[in-house]
Design a protein around this nucleic acid. Sequence first.
RNA 1: GCGCCCGUAGCUCAGAUGGAUAGAGUACUGCCCUCCGAAGGCAGGGGUCGCACGUUCGAAUCGUGUCGGGCGCGCCA
Length: 589
Amino acid sequence: MYHDIRSHLTHLVRAALERVFPDQRDSDVFLERPKLARHGDFSCNLPMRLSRPLKRAPREIAQLLAAAIPESPFVDSTEIAGTGFINFYLRPSARLEAVRAALTKKDDFGRSESGGKKKLQIEFVSANPTGPLHVGHGRGAVYGASLANLMAFSGWDVTREYYVNDAGRQMDILAVSVWLRYLALFNGGGVPAFPTNAYQGDYVVDMARRLKEKHGSEFARPSSDVSPDLPSLLPSECDGEKPKEAREALLDAMIARAKALLGDAWPVIHHHVLMAQLAECRNDLEEFGVFHDIWFSEKALHDTGLVARCVEKLEIGGYLYEKDGAKWFRSTSFGDEKDRVVLRDNGAYTYFASDIAYHLNKFERGFDRIVDIWGADHHGYIPRVKGAVAALGLDAKKLEIALVQFAVLYRDGKKVSMSTRSAEFISLRTLREEVGNDACHFFYVLRKSDQHLDFDLDLAKSRTNENPVYYIQYAHARLCSVLAQWGGEIAALDFADLSRLDNPLDLVLASRLGEFPEVVEAAARDLAPHAIAFYLKDLAADFHSYYNAERILVDDQALKIARLALATAVRQVVRNGLKLLGVSCPESM
RNA sequence: GCGCCCGUAGCUCAGAUGGAUAGAGUACUGCCCUCCGAAGGCAGGGGUCGCACGUUCGAAUCGUGUCGGGCGCGCCA
């Protein structure tokens, strides 16, 4: 396989280096794959790097090194080129190794043990369960899911986790929103005003209906009791002073009023709403092909007292101080721009406090590596979380934060605004139904995660368009079609004489297959599943090109079997790659 | 104002540890189905890698500055 050949060549160069320039034996020897075919299969720039310390011309060094490189059964020839590269040309048999490997390893071709079965946790999506997942969450979901597949394929023992923010004010706002919609379902006594900053979507009304179906009028209260002494919630009344703060205060007053009026019934509504949203969310993700092993409750962190213990631990460590009646974490000691409150003056822990506890819990569960996938708008949060982790005496290097930039929707060439609280947003479900899961996955993963994503709805929605996912799936369908027409047993291809694959296009395709393990390895190293998508595009292009230039089902039996073996190997790699991305491989389309 | 991310072809984007003539897709132009699937292939035009300095044998890549865009700077979650 190519990976092995690379280390083999590295070894050869190193041997030559020791022989010719023993003083430089500690230099890094790096072999890269040239972008241009005429520069060989592998290229080494060591001569140029040695030019300075040796005070000799690169080409001269290259001559000496190249002459000292031992013979190899894999190398056809070497050459000195450009300003001092040593280029290696492999024998066809070496390039065809990948075809054999793909045929024998099948689903495991590309799999590696570089993760060493160490425990890796990937936390992703973790959206507040306060409404349908939208297009922005979709990107995090696909990134997390494909990254998890990629890391598992690279030998990590992966746990996929969703952190449920079930303890905060947002859930209260949703609960009160549902309750108000619920009240509106009862005709008597008029309807209380519905705050503009409560959750507006139709799903809130749906939950209210289900609440009524299940509990009847149990939670009904006279409208006159709900908001008589609260100032009007119409925004026009608030203009003039500070509308936003005033409206938020009114919402809080509304929540307090609801809790007072409902008493023990409030937690029932709260729980009903949470469960409904969580089920909705899980269902939504599973239909999308995105799964989590663990749904971790923020509330549980409070209930088990871990948040309190965590704050205590920081206090004992001397990382906290009191100011204005609140307890502050000295995050500036860890590079943050300001200190952060963990315990408010009203006695409530901040979200930050439970997040610290959550990370402590992650470490206590014994993960060797933890990857948090966050929306890029949370980047300012990194120093304080890493700081808290360090303050707790944990190894902050085990924690990595992968930021996912926003997806911006475009329709008719114009931006579509997105806000969870506004009724006007595109849900992930809507997008999936219109675009299809496959195109959706592929579109999301076709960009580097830390790059802004322009999601063109019109483009993604049109099914017969130039969407690249079809390009790759089409290659797969073509391969299936050819193999079906042949009709033989795939196992028979194990005896194919691959040396018959001797024209340049055969070898280009074989070389491409050989890259796959390296691409997987690099993608895992960089936490970059998009690299798989780009590779698959290249592979599909090579195949389509091959298909147009060469016939697979030829009369020459031995050649036909060899080409079918190549085709099967290509199909295998397409499958392995698309599987990592969560995209299906239709046999016809 | 401070911090993080980004600026590569008309458009959308790839380009680890600095390497050879900077690549795809799309759009545009012209070709290729009596032939395994034309959702395909082949060929062509299209670039000062935002700009300026610097580091060096060599810079899209590293450093400084600058211009432009996105995001973040709560005792919210």
